[in-house]
């Protein structure tokens, strides 16, 4: 159905072919299949594919380099999918936890980049429409009141009011304005140094954590930043099946 060729700045090409819920990742030069995964309700799962018995065995450091290359290409593709706002659907990047952590062992190459339908997102993060509506109405209120000064200040005020409204709900299903230490995922004082500051969290027990990041104007959530946020979330909520990052 879809074929995406990612050409890295060094010229190496990685091809992502998606047919239904199955995604095959190939080397753009040799055509060799590097990975094949299927998107399931448990995330990306590896699928078997034919490998030549005569193919040379790769050394661990070659595997690591290949893994890094595939991950970088996947993040580039994810960024592209995420900024295509005219499409019906939400960009999704699924990979095992180890893929996110630089320098960690390369074990299972299950990885999937693509779009999920709004229906699927509603199933996984049931409060997403509510959060979007809250952000939209709050931004409109602040805009109508005026007197906020710079656009930066406008953004800060909108953030604070959204957080205040969510905290006022006293709903354990939504958490606003928390900070987790980047290295350990331990909760720290909001906005303290070296911590990952989170706008809104929706823990959907037992298996999913949805993270909402509010962006104003032309600001975008960069893929590298998304990976940092999800890494901290994984440490704070270990053992979940889905960690979903949503830009509002």
């Amino acid at each position: 159905d879809e074929q995406h060729t990612v050409t890295a700045p060094d010229g190496t090409r990685t091809v992502f072919e998606t047919s239904g819920l199955t995604q095959t990742i190939r080397d753009g030069g040799s055509g060799e299949i590097l990975s094949r995964s299927r998107l399931t309700t448990s995330g990306a799962e590896p699928e078997a594919f034919f490998q030549s018995a005569r193919a040379p065995q790769r050394l661990p450091r070659e595997l690591k380099r290949l893994s890094d290359r595939i991950l970088q290409a996947a993040i580039s593709l994810f960024t592209t999918e995420a900024i295509r706002r005219n499409r019906d659907g939400t960009a999704i990047f699924a990979a095992p936890a180890s893929e996110y952590i630089p320098g960690d062992a390369f074990n299972d190459r299950a990885m999937w980049v693509g779009a999920v339908s709004q229906r699927e997102l509603d199933r996984l993060c049931p409060r997403n429409a509510e959060i979007q509506a809250l952000a939209k109405s709050t931004a409109a209120e602040v805009r109508a009141l005026g007197g906020y000064g710079t656009e930066q200040n406008f953004g800060n005020i909108v953030h604070r009011i959204i957080a205040h409204k969510i905290k006022s709900m006293k709903d354990p299903g939504l958490i606003a304005e928390v900070s987790y230490a980047a290295e350990t995922g331990i909760g720290v004082h909001y906005s303290s140094g070296q911590s990952i500051r989170l706008d809104v969290l929706e823990p959907v027990r037992p298996s999913t954590v949805c993270v909402y990041d509010h962006k104003m104007g032309k600001a975008i959530l960069r893929a590298v930043r998304a990976v940092d946020i999800i890494t901290a979330i994984q440490k704070h909520y270990p053992g979940m099946r889905n960690y979903i990052m949503i830009e509002v």
Binding site: D1, E2, T5, Q72, R222
Partner: peptide, 20 residues
């Protein structure tokens, strides 16, 4: 129908997408 689109990302990668 087939659509083709090329995007350059912030990190300098190019993504060529073909959809059938």
């Amino acid at each position: 129908s087939t659509t083709q689109e090329e995007v350059v990302t912030a990190d300098g990668s190019r993504v060529l997408s073909i959809r059938i």
